[in-house]
Design a protein around this nucleic acid. Structure first.
Length: 958
RNA sequence: GCCGAUGUUGCCAAGCCUGGUCAAAGGCGAUGGACUCAAGAUCCAUUCUCGUAGGAGUUCACCGGUUCGAAUCCGGUCGUCGGCACCA
């Protein structure tokens, strides 16, 4: 049996929309709940992983709606950055893989021409996200409020946000070092390669420039390892390279020509002087920084004028290149001769051991060379050797006692300290360089340039950090680990570059429009904007109206309404309405996002709220969800290999997928996508629909019986656990109760002959209401099938009625008996034709009752209970059996919950089993006879009745 | 390396905070049975090991500790995953 979910989905989505369920309007009568999921970046088609978090959001919103809240659930997209530009350029360049990806995901071919324009790309995906994903999934989002970070009105809001940050002194300017094309300015260096034609994987690396005094000029070496200066024994110059002198302030430096050009980009007051050949410098001595020793200048061909300064200080102990080059020089007398170096000078240079690394000897460089079998300078494996020894040294190394005041420090720490010491004494400077050659798409070389006027948001501000941190304690964050860790993350934040130049989409920086506000910084305060976007979208206000004064008024309540109205040309009534909306909806109650947001988006979201908005508008909750993964790796949008959403929806149905997301795992673990798993959820929905149909077509017992009490008690219990679970947004626990436990209970109800119309109807009302948050379409379908009024989506979740332990206990007993019989059958491998049950003798029940009373008063122990029992004459006759049973009862009562025992005592087991005789007999296909163990005439050939205790009838099979 | 998360019975995944009712929920898969000409779906049962009476034994990454008692608390080790900044 299979249902047409597609038709069902369309039908109910239309009804929701017709009854404006998706509209959220201020309603002072109702408590509000405002929620969002972190809007996605416009970078391609979404995959089944994204819908996980979105589905949680909608389900939570629907639940809140059904428990009395007025819910605002707006959506939008984030298109800032170069994503859309990249996509557009791929289309423009006729990238066949990419075009295939578009078409495979449902993009019509005739649309392709349009998509050469980045803005059209954004529009296209905005439509796809809203129509093909969110609406298709049945979300009750308020579509009228949709916004995108590239909309002009959104831009106005962001500019206002930056004005406020500036007012608060949180915008600061300081130098920043960025890869820059001489013509196009700063460029983005990343693998997507929109700005550059070569070098997408390059990174900016920080070198320490060390100054070696020679006469009244300086040889400049660049190093990544300032901590090794105590091991310097000589200096390398490439004899075949022409270097240059430069004027740096009042000093004269010697560096390679490319280095001189790069330095001009980063440092002030540099002028080029005359060149000098490397060969001429060989045989000089110079004074090494920090250690202030004269060291000789030796020839080395490995030093590359394009890397660093083109000059290298030599630390043979820890640098494989240095070790092997020194070795070569020592072992080849002709080489020394060629450069006029004396034998004794060369021999006098001995490596100094400076760092101890576990697994290495005194000279790590030597060890690694030998281990890798490297024999001579120029071996390409030296690069790998260098990386390895650097890495090990940095992470696990310690400075030996040859390192002066830095002796004993961990390398990691010594590195910073030594660098700082040399910077302070003027013996060193900082220099940035790229790890590989980068070429702009215009063909010109990209180098690191100092930008003096880079803007930052000062997240390092102590006062702000303190206040934000404090607010976090008042928030509801899930998982709890995030609540714990967010404080450390907030403290870790420093200044963050918030604007950039170049080929990017985004909002212009309000104080200098050569800058564009970057992607993280324009997506921090945006939930607030959804309240205002409603008015911008329907034309009641336009971007021109949205001045600083306007936002100050509607968001912060500043200014006189009349004046603001005059200045902004927005009617007073509109201003008042927006202001009331803001006051009603804000703060945001829940912000849901994927785990990648924990260290970036969520903290800046919190910082900006705390900085700009008053106490009453601070966010209340954050919910983090984990991923759906592919085999082995995260399903990435960019890879495009994941199953397209529309196809998945076709295959599994929206509700099947929604149920899958809700139930497959806790929100806080990654889940591997598996079509088989999703399919089983779809089948479960089939089964549920079938069960409802069966229940409706059943007869009517008129009189309610024990099984009806049982079912209602169970359902009330489930209803309570559903509410409890949803308090914590625990959709999984909720789904377990609704789609598994409740279904099983209904099956059992039927199996036990339950068919009272009223009970069934009441149970279905509860059941279907509980399904509405997660599988709303199926719920609506069944709701109307049963004949309930209106839409379940706008109904209220029933309040749970009483739960009766004793009503539930009876069925537990019957199931236990059935399990035990199965168990015995299995062990004895027999197929019993006759099943005899013996309920507990009354004296055991009496002992249990007395024991329970004592446990209630806390006076339960073995001797006292024994004494109390022996006071009874009847019991004394069974003396030995009683004392043994007392022991059992006492351990039993101390271990298990007293409630369950109380429920047990409230039931007459004999009549219960007797009334279930027919059912048991039929179900187990055997004759069933029930005796009380008190019955002297009972049929009991093996004296099994002895074993009977309360809650556990004895069983005899034959 | 630093910070964080995580390791449960064939697989997925609850339980862990708040120790006992835990051989450990639920789902998937598998096996047997019912239904069916048959397949699928559905329903029932079983699914760590042993066991001709409802029991016993050994388990929750590994080692050690606390406790009358540990999957749960503490310490250590190993493995896996994520973040480490201008990237959304």
């Amino acid at each position: 049996m299979s249902y047409d979910y597609g038709e069902m989905e369309r039908k109910w989505q239309k009804k929701w929309s017709d009854s404006k369920l998706d509209h959220a309007e201020r309603d002072a009568e109702k408590p509000k709940f405002m929620m969002i999921f972190a809007y996605p970046g416009v970078t391609g088609f979404l995959h089944v992983g994204h819908l996980r978090g979105y589905t949680y959001t909608d389900a939570i919103g629907r639940y809140k709606r059904m428990t009395g809240y007025n819910v605002l659930f707006p959506v939008g997209t984030h298109a800032t950055g170069n994503g859309a530009i990249t996509l557009a350029s791929k289309v423009a360049n006729n990238d066949l893989d990419f075009i295939d990806y578009l078409v495979r995901n449902g993009c019509p071919r005739e649309k392709l021409d349009d998509l050469k324009d980045p803005m059209k790309v954004v529009d296209y995906f905005n439509t796809v996200y809203v129509n093909d994903y969110w609406k298709r999934f049945g979300f009750l989002a308020d579509w009228r409020r949709f916004t995108c970070t590239l909309y002009p009105d959104y831009g106005k809001f962001i500019q206002w946000q930056f004005r406020k940050l500036n007012d608060l002194g949180l915008l600061i300017q300081k130098p920043y070092y960025s890869p820059t094309c001489p013509v196009h300015g700063p460029v983005a260096v990343d693998a997507s390669e929109t700005d550059i034609s070569k070098g997408g994987n390059a990174e900016v690396q920080e070198y320490t420039l060390l100054k070696f005094k020679h006469g009244n000029e300086y040889l400049i070496a660049a190093t990544l390892r300032p901590e090794t200066v105590y091991g310097q024994v000589c200096f390398w110059v490439n004899p075949d390279v022409e270097y240059t002198r430069i004027k740096k302030g009042s000093e004269t430096w010697i560096v390679s020509k490319p280095a001189a050009e790069k330095l001009q980009l980063q440092k002030d007051g540099i002028t080029m002087l005359e060149p000098i050949s490397g060969r001429d410098m060989i045989g000089w001595t110079c004074e090494a920084p920090m250690i202030h020793r004269e060291i000789p200048v030796f020839p080395a061909t490995f030093s590359d004028p394009n890397v660093g300064s083109g000059l290298v200080t030599s630390v043979p102990s820890d640098a494989p290149d240095d070790w092997i080059s020194l070795d070569a020089l020592k072992n080849d007398p002709s080489m020394a001769e060629e450069y006029g170096l004396s034998r004794s000078l060369v021999d006098s240079v001995e490596p100094i051991s400076i760092i101890t690394i576990e697994g290495y000897g005194d000279f790590p460089a030597k060890d690694i060379i030998e281990r890798m079998g490297i024999k001579e300078p120029g071996d390409p494996r030296l690069d790998e050797a260098k990386k390895q020894v650097y890495k090990d040294g940095y992470h696990i190394g310690r400075m030996k006692d040859t390192s002066g005041p830095f002796s004993g420090m961990r390398v990691e720490e010594a590195k910073e300290k030594m660098k700082q010491a040399m910077l302070d004494s003027g013996e060193a400077e900082i220099f940035y360089d790229l790890t590989e050659e980068v070429v702009c798409r215009c063909g010109r070389p990209v180098n690191v340039k100092r930008i003096d006027d880079q803007w930052f948001i000062d997240y390092g501000n102590e006062e702000l950090t303190e206040r934000t941190d404090k607010h976090c304690y008042d928030m509801d964050m899930n998982p709890p680990e995030f609540y714990e860790n967010v404080h450390a993350t907030l403290r870790w934040f420093r200044e963050r570059a918030c604007v950039r130049q170049g080929n990017w989409l985004g909002t212009r920086f309000p104080f200098d429009d050569k800058w564009i506000i970057e992607a993280i910084s324009d997506s921090t305060l945006y939930p607030l904007y959804y309240i205002i976007s409603l008015y911008a979208n329907d034309g009641r206000i336009s971007p021109d109206n949205m001045t600083e004064e306007f936002f100050d008024h509607v968001v912060l309540g500043k200014g006189d309404a009349k004046k603001v109205s005059e200045n902004t040309k927005v009617p007073e009534s509109i201003l008042a309405s927006i202001r009331s909306d803001v006051e009603y909806w804000y703060p945001l109650d829940m912000n849901l996002g994927g785990k990648e947001h924990m260290t970036v988006h969520f903290p800046v979201f919190l910082f900006n709220h705390r900085a700009i908005l008053p106490d009453s508008m601070q966010p209340k909750g954050i919910l983090v969800n984990w991923y759906i993964t592919g085999k082995k790796e995260k399903i990435a949008k960019s890879k495009g290999g994941a199953q397209p959403i529309p196809g998945a929806v076709e295959q599994f149905g929206v509700d099947g997928m929604r149920l899958y997301y809700a139930h497959i795992a806790s929100m806080f673990v990654d889940v591997e996508w598996s079509e088989d798993n999703v399919m089983t959820y779809r089948q479960r929905l089939d089964r549920i629909m079938g069960t409802v149909e069966e229940l409706l077509s059943g007869g009517d017992a008129k009189e309610a019986s024990e099984i009806d009490d049982w079912l209602m008690s169970r359902f009330n219990g489930h209803l309570m656990s559903v509410r409890k679970a949803m308090e914590k947004y625990d959709l999984r626990q909720m789904a377990t109760a609704v789609y598994f436990e409740m279904l099983n209970d209904l099956k059992w109800y039927g199996r036990r002959g339950g068919n009272n119309k009223e009970t069934v109807s009441e149970a279905l009302r509860i059941w279907i209401s509980c399904m509405a948050p997660i599988t709303p379409h199926v719920a609506e379908e069944m709701w109307s099938l049963v004949g309930f009024d209106g839409l379940v989506s706008s109904a209220q979740l029933p309040e749970p009625g009483p739960v009766s332990g004793s009503a539930e206990y009876g069925e537990t007993l019957i199931r236990d008996v059935m399990t035990d019989v199965q168990q015995i059958k299995k062990v004895t491998a027999s197929d019993a034709k006759k099943i005899v049950l013996y309920t507990s003798p009354s004296w055991k029940t009496a002992v249990m009752r007395i024991g329970l009373e004592m446990a209630d008063n806390g006076t339960l122990d073995i001797p006292t209970l024994t004494k109390k029992c022996m006071a009874d004459e009847e019991m004394r006759k069974n003396g030995k059996a009683v004392s043994e049973f007392v022991k059992k009862v006492v351990t039993d009562l101390t271990r298990s919950s007293l409630d369950s025992k109380r429920d047990m005592m409230g039931v007459d087991e004999y009549s219960l089993l007797a009334s279930a005789k027919d059912f048991l007999s039929e179900d187990m296909n055997a004759e069933v006879i029930v005796f009380s163990a008190d019955d002297k005439d009972a049929y009991d050939p093996q004296n099994k009745s002895r074993a009977a205790v309360p809650g556990r009838p004895a069983i005899y099979l034959e």
